[in-house]
């Protein structure tokens, strides 16, 4: 079907394969490969994008459903080569390892902070529960969210202890 969608501020008008997901549309048609495919089944959250301001698993939405919608992906998070505050906090707190879950994780954190600028640890855990990460054990991601929401200082930052 013919569709029109705004992605990262650009209007795309495209013929889209009816059974394709938004994830395949973004990655294969628009070549926005920053959004990752970890399971194609809504289990891992690696493909999380913002659809009309809401975080969704792009593998669980048909591309056709995004007709007329606004989509934001990781490619729009940094502006003019400058990392966003969320991205910078991830970097400061070692919240990235292999990086494959990172795009989806940043999207979920963004949605969380838009609704709840100072989330508690429990709320952060709830907010990123749908995003699996196999490398970090999540802790440094949680610390990054506390950091970017102004709830951590150099003293309370989680650190390595030496004996």
């Amino acid at each position: 079907m013919w569709m029109s969608v705004e992605v990262n501020g650009h209007i795309y008008e495209r013929e889209v394969t009816e059974h394709w997901t938004l994830l395949r549309f973004l990655r294969e048609d628009l070549e926005l490969t920053g959004t990752k495919d970890g399971c194609s089944a809504g289990e891992c959250g690696a493909c999380t994008v913002m659809l009309n301001g809401q975080a969704v698993n792009a593998c669980m939405v048909l591309a056709a459903e995004a007709d007329g919608a606004t989509v934001e992906t990781i490619e729009a998070e940094a502006v003019d080569g400058e990392l966003s505050e969320i991205q910078a906090a991830f970097a400061r707190n070692y919240a990235v390892q292999c990086g494959y879950c990172t795009a989806g994780m940043v999207m979920s954190v963004r949605e969380l902070l838009e609704h709840n600028p100072k989330p508690t640890v429990a709320e952060i855990k709830e907010g990123i529960e749908g995003n699996l990460c196999r490398c970090t054990g999540y802790q440094q991601i949680i610390e990054a969210v506390l950091d970017v929401s102004g709830q951590i200082d150099s003293k309370s930052r989680g650190g390595l202890k030496y004996v």
Binding site: R27, L32, T33, G34, T35, K36, D37, T73, I74, E75, E77, A78, L83, Q87, F90, A91, R92, Y94, V96, C98, G99, Y100, T102, A103, V106
Partner: peptide, 18 residues
């Protein structure tokens, strides 16, 4: 800080799957 942060945080890092 990790040297690969920027690429991975912006979606610019290319994996074999990309």
């Amino acid at each position: 800080q990790r040297v690969d942060d920027a690429a991975k945080l912006t979606g610019g890092a290319m994996y074999a799957s990309d």
